[in-house]
Simulated scan of single mutants.
Amino acid sequence: MTVAELSPMAQDYLKLIWKCQEWSDAPVSTNALAGRLGVSPSTVSGNIKKLASLGLIDHTPYGAIQLSVEGRTAAVQMVRRHRLLETYLVVRLGYGWDEVHDEAENLEHSVSQLFIDRIDTDLGHPGRDPHGDPIPDADGRIDRPAAQQLSEVEPGRCGYIARILDDDAELLRYLDTRRLVLDTHITVDEHRRFAGSLSITRESGADGPEQLDLGLAAAESIWLTTTPHRHPGARTPRAVPAGS
């Protein structure tokens, strides 16, 4: 069964299960999926049974949800579609990084595999999407950076922004106004755990360093790595200014 033969529901569920495990070792539960999808646990349970009957997931009642080998293959293909579409929308069509998530969600179910392969070639086979998430290659291989959440980085440590969660467009626009985008170098100055914030210093080129305060939600959305990543031909995505 190819990914194109799966229903949009199956495509969405497989992709979400895989993404839940991409940066976390926590088991995937029915309730966790229901929260992410905005549906009832009973709806998720019914759809999980359908996917299990197709051999796409392994699941026992009240147990963790695991992708089968076939399910993982399909999930990675959907992730590849989504992230290539996001990248194409930013690099070729001028979308802001805060605009592409929902657009790609709609497009990924309808475009052909040939189209995905063509935009991959046109973009020069990018290694990451506009938010820093790795793009699987045509064979399903993934080069994931060794990154750590900013909220967990100890004071005095520094790094480059390698990844930013893409599910909150308003947060992406806020980070853009603070010039906290991919490959920005920052140093953690202080954790204010009881206040739910931390202080960082952002290196801003000719303007010199600038100290910023971030709330916990913003800090948990940013991941740092020790070295920057630049893919040939890629550009740092930015949000579209309000009113443009």
Rank of each mutant, 00 (worst) to 15 (best):
M1W: 03
T2N: 12
E5Q: 15
L6R: 10
L6H: 06
S7K: 03
Y13R: 05
I17E: 06
W18T: 01
K19C: 10
K19E: 15
K19S: 13
C20K: 11
Q21F: 01
D25L: 11
A26W: 05
V28S: 04
T30S: 12
T30R: 12
N31S: 14
N31Q: 14
L33M: 06
G35L: 08
G35N: 13
R36K: 14
L37V: 07
P41L: 02
S45M: 10
G46A: 10
N47K: 11
L51K: 01
L54H: 13
G55W: 05
L56G: 05
T60S: 14
Q66E: 13
T73V: 08
M78E: 12
H82N: 04
R83C: 08
T87F: 09
T87H: 13
R92Q: 15
G94Q: 04
Y95R: 11
Y95P: 00
G96W: 03
E103G: 01
N106V: 12
L107M: 11
S112C: 07
F115Q: 11
D117S: 10
T121V: 13
T121I: 12
R128W: 10
P130R: 08
G132D: 09
G140T: 03
R141I: 07
A147D: 13
Q148K: 10
E152T: 10
P155M: 03
C158E: 15
G159E: 03
G159K: 02
I161C: 05
L165V: 08
D168E: 08
R178N: 07
D183S: 10
H185D: 05
I186H: 02
T187F: 00
T187P: 00
V188T: 02
D189Y: 00
D189R: 12
D189H: 09
H191Y: 01
R193S: 11
F194K: 15
F194S: 13
A195E: 14
G196M: 06
I200W: 05
E203A: 11
G205Q: 00
G205F: 05
G205M: 00
A206H: 11
D207M: 10
D207C: 04
L214C: 10
I222V: 11
W223I: 04
W223D: 10
T225K: 04
T236S: 06
T236H: 07
S244K: 09
S244E: 14
